[in-house]
Simulated assay, not measured.
Amino acid sequence: MNKNLLGIDFEDWFHPELVQKYISKENHEPKIINGIEKILELLRKKESNATFFVVGELLEFKPELFDIILENGHEIAFHTMKHDRIDSLNFQNIFETEIRKFHSLTNGKSRGFRAPSFSLNQKSSWLIDVLENNNYTYDSSIVPAKTSLYGMPDAEIKPYTITSNSLEKNSNGKITEFPILVTKFLGKTIPAGGGFYLRTLPMKIITNAIKNYEKKNIPSTFYIHSWELTPEFMPKIKMSKKDDFITYHNLGKAFDKMDSLLDEFEFTSFENFSK
């Protein structure tokens, strides 16, 4: 059976970009971290490993998250310190400090990175050099499809090596890129690798997308947010109709859909896959 990759974007209710638009910047009480045991129990039951792409400030708030994740056989990776878009103004000036901070919070165990909101693009390609310089070995920030929020439609669909000068095509870099699963739908390439798409697309489309990759011997890279697996801890924020739909649509169905995917397919962490 082919191994696929599962990344859990471990962030709290106030981190998603669309939520941030509607709330103040001051300190917020983390709630989603209280669902960690539920997530671990799901993975335990399915005998699956995952990579937790953790927003660093949650480790500052609750340092034992680090041990809990590792002791259960999972991998810890970096999702920035506060879930800022990496292509935002001045982010380049603080990222070096952030990556060092995360290094100390995780005893240098982190080797992988994912950009919040998949915000790796030509404007933020400098980040790949910083990852290289800090002994990172992989990234998973590229969606090979165009959406209104992100995407690089010309990127490879299978894992490839990436450099700051070549984000979309295989190059002789040190960082391996694991692009998110995509599929064809009504003649158009769309993301199928988790999040909103897991909640919105019929399961048949997602399972066929994974099977299609398996036939080509390509691992499917899948992602799900911690708040999608623990909607009971996700407060309802007043938002515009569109933002509300993207954030909350079918939120109650994400756990069961992930549960059935873990039954049907084999998933592992990025670290285990690369061994």
Score class of each variant (00 low, 15 high):
Y160E: 07
L198R: 04
D256N: 13
I142D: 07
F95M: 05
F95I: 00
T247A: 11
I210M: 05
I76Q: 08
G193F: 12
W13M: 05
L40M: 14
E41V: 02
F255W: 10
G73N: 06
I157T: 07
I128F: 09
N272H: 03
T189F: 15
P159H: 08
I180A: 11
E214W: 01
N170D: 15
R114H: 09
A192C: 14
S148I: 10
W227A: 12
E64F: 12
I210T: 04
T200G: 03
R111L: 15
E11D: 01
S240Y: 07
S240A: 09
L42D: 04
I224P: 00
Y197F: 04
W126Y: 12
E26A: 12
N217E: 10
L40D: 06
E271K: 14
N4W: 13
K184V: 11
I142V: 10
W13F: 13
E156F: 06
L261Q: 00
I23G: 01
D12W: 06
P159E: 15
P231W: 07
L131V: 01
T97I: 12
S125M: 13
F273T: 03
Y213R: 11
K242Q: 05
I68L: 11
K21D: 02
N2S: 11
I180M: 10
M258H: 01
N272A: 15
K174C: 11
K109E: 05
K62M: 05
G194N: 03
L43A: 04
S88T: 09
E75V: 13
K242A: 14
T247Y: 06
E271C: 15
V143L: 00
N272E: 01
I180S: 11
L42F: 05
R85D: 11
K275R: 05
S125T: 03
E96T: 03
K188Y: 14
E17L: 08
P16F: 13
S140A: 10
V182D: 02
E168I: 09
G73Y: 02
I8E: 08
L167Y: 13
N217K: 05
G187T: 03
R85M: 05
M234H: 06
F14C: 06
D129S: 12
L251T: 06
L127F: 04
K62Q: 09
S48T: 13
T189P: 08
S260T: 15
I246S: 04
I86N: 00
Q20K: 09
I76N: 01
G193I: 10
F265V: 00
K45P: 07
Q92Y: 14
P202C: 11
L167K: 02
K216M: 03
H28D: 07
F118S: 00
T189K: 14
